[in-house]
Amino acid sequence: MTKTLKVGDDVIWRNGTDLRGTIQYGPFLSAAVDGEDAYLVRGQDSEPPTSYVVSASSIEKCGLQFAVNDRVIDADWWGTGRIVYGPYSTSGVSMYLVSRDGEDLIQPTRASQLHAVVASIGDRVRVVKGDDAVPRISAMFEGKIGELVEVDPAGPVQYLVQIGSGAHGAPDGRWWCAEVERVEADDSRPAGFEYYGVFYEYGVSYLDKDGNIWTFDGTMNREGIPVAVSENPLMHGCSLVRVVRNYGPLDRLNT
């Protein structure tokens, strides 16, 4: 999965110490980092300011600041823990003291290798983003709610979500996802499907630009995309994607 970085992002990277800067350009292929994807980064800690070519694999987006008792994932250790002190600086490196779960150990840990715990195993979560490397399958899971069954802090896609009893990659199965959000027990969001940022509720009628009425009852096609019920038999069974692209935008009729 490609890291989501853009011009203007504040980032941190390792070069003897943790360095901070702002992305000026990229990504681009660079011989300076052995042909890897790279970014041009303007350093924040040098005077006068210096720009660096930094490999994408060694760069992380800044912005996460932790407080005492925050739950975190240590990407180097592959485990979770709790912040007990920090941040503080050691030889120019931003650090925290982390109490590791299941161990009687408090470990000094670089800030750059810590990530916020968004959910715990067993929580109900909504899939925000699947795996960019497999977009066709990932689209079947984005917007769905399931159970978080495994976390891989070091992986490019960290969260394994179980939607139903199906096999891995099946629409009612499980899938490794890049981003999830915890769903509270009293979450009132109805059953439905999210497509390009718009949520379509099952059992609700929608009016298209030509005056046709569409309803989605939760029936899926082989690709895991909802199919429509239409008053026009020639249009019955069209996928939500086809309906939105060819006849949208769709306006909700009933509440």
Rank of each mutant, 00 (worst) to 15 (best):
M1L: 14
L105F: 10
G166S: 09
V118I: 14
V180Y: 01
P156D: 15
A185P: 02
D217H: 11
T109Y: 06
A139I: 04
G86S: 08
R71Y: 03
R126S: 04
V134K: 11
G203W: 02
Q24R: 12
D18A: 14
N69P: 01
P87W: 03
V118K: 13
T22A: 07
V84E: 14
V54I: 15
L253A: 02
R182I: 14
A38R: 01
A32M: 10
F66Y: 13
A31C: 08
L207I: 10
P233D: 06
Y96R: 00
T219R: 08
Y39N: 05
G122P: 05
I213S: 04
V180F: 03
D132Q: 07
R189C: 07
E36I: 01
R136K: 09
G21Q: 02
Q158I: 03
V98C: 09
D10W: 00
A178C: 07
A139L: 11
G43F: 01
G79N: 14
E47Y: 07
V54P: 00
G155A: 15
G79R: 12
Y247W: 15
G26I: 01
D131Y: 15
G224E: 06
F193E: 00
S112C: 09
V229R: 15
F28N: 02
H168Q: 08
A67I: 13
Y39I: 07
S188W: 02
A133E: 10
S205M: 10
S165L: 08
D37N: 15
D74C: 10
K144Y: 02
S30D: 07
I121D: 05
F193L: 01
V53S: 06
G86C: 08
R82H: 05
G102W: 00
P156E: 15
V128H: 04
Y85N: 14
H168G: 10
R110P: 12
D18S: 13
D45P: 00
L64F: 11
V244T: 12
A185C: 07
E231M: 08
I163K: 08
S46G: 06
G35R: 03
W214R: 02
G63L: 01
G192K: 04
S230W: 09
Y206A: 03
N246G: 02
G237K: 02
I225W: 02
T219M: 13
T4N: 12
R174S: 13
I145P: 01
A178I: 11
F216L: 12
G21W: 00
R71D: 11
A154C: 14
V149P: 00
D131F: 14
G224C: 07
G146Q: 01
T2L: 12
N69M: 12
N246Q: 14
E231G: 14
S165E: 13
T50K: 11
R126P: 01
H236E: 06
G8T: 06
E231C: 03
G218S: 06
T90K: 09
Y85I: 00
L148M: 04
P190H: 04
R222A: 05
V227T: 14
G224I: 05
N69S: 13
